[in-house]
Design a binder for these strands. Structure first.
Lengths: 149, 149
DNA sequence: GTTATTGCAAAATATTTGCATTATA
DNA sequence: TATAATGCAAATATTTTGCAATAAC
């Protein structure tokens, strides 16, 4: 029985969407998959990948992310309002931004925005549903109340 | 009985939030109130106001919008992903962006995101709830199916 | 070998900052 | 008059574009 590596799995994913599995694309996708909860910016991905691919350019990161978005492999979130955060998200979900520490959490809500909802609203045909929350996260709340050790 | 003009009403609103009612601020607020469904960018406001205040600067528009946001008079939406849209919105609501014509509609959904929801999620304390939809609007759908005259 | 991708440099866009001028209370 | 707001110029940050070099199939 043949072992299937993670890279081979990602390669197959790219090919199935009609994207050539270049080293740059595979590395960006692997980073997004491993760090999926970090919701990085293009710049963060670029900085992280320079160690592995010293010649990579920010243009390639943007090209790659655009291609992934177009094929629906990743999603883009504008939750912070200052830059786009990218998310490798096989399962649709919403987000929570902590206004204190800046961390973005995935949230799986029971009654998600759009659940038991028709695919139209006021006659408009819905293709995408985005929902996000802002506030103080669990961790920062605990720190505030002196619960951190 | 004394008539209360709209400008006087807006002046009172600014003063009640501790903001000096300068001509620039009143004019920006009046524009947002009258065009509240247009969800303009800072640039759109600036372009529109040059006719009335030829000396106004984009910096003042940004300063003004920041002050309004801080005082909760307006809200900011990042629905398009490329720039911030401002909204004078006395009643909280969600938004729909038409990916064809770019128009942003207000939507009052029956089961809004966060309705019948506690003020925490996964232990995170919620201060703001944002929800938006993307798709093809009523008008563009009609055009597509040949219903426009 | 042909076509698509990469990556550099420069441009475009959106927003912020420093500071002198001006207006407000 | 003291304080805050305005507006110009320049800076910063993010993203996009043109194009030549390179890599994939």
């Amino acid at each position: 029985m043949k072992m299937i590596t993670n890279m081979e799995k990602l390669k197959t994913l790219l090919e199935s969407r009609g994207l050539k599995p270049t080293f740059q694309r595979l590395t960006v996708l692997e980073y997004l998959e491993k760090h999926e909860c970090h919701h990085p910016t293009a710049e963060m991905i670029y900085e992280a990948l320079i160690a592995r691919i010293p010649t990579i350019s920010i243009t390639t990161v943007y090209n790659t992310l655009s291609a992934f978005l177009e094929k629906g492999i990743i999603s883009a979130e504008t939750i912070t309002g200052t830059e786009v955060r990218y998310d490798f998200a096989p399962v649709p979900h919403h987000h929570f931004l902590c206004t204190k520490c800046g961390k973005i959490y995935d949230v799986k809500i029971k009654c998600p925005l759009g659940n038991d909802m028709k695919n139209t609203i006021d006659g408009h045909h819905i293709h995408e549903i985005h929902g996000y929350f802002k506030g103080i996260c669990r961790e920062c709340s605990n720190k505030k109340s002196g619960k951190q050790k």
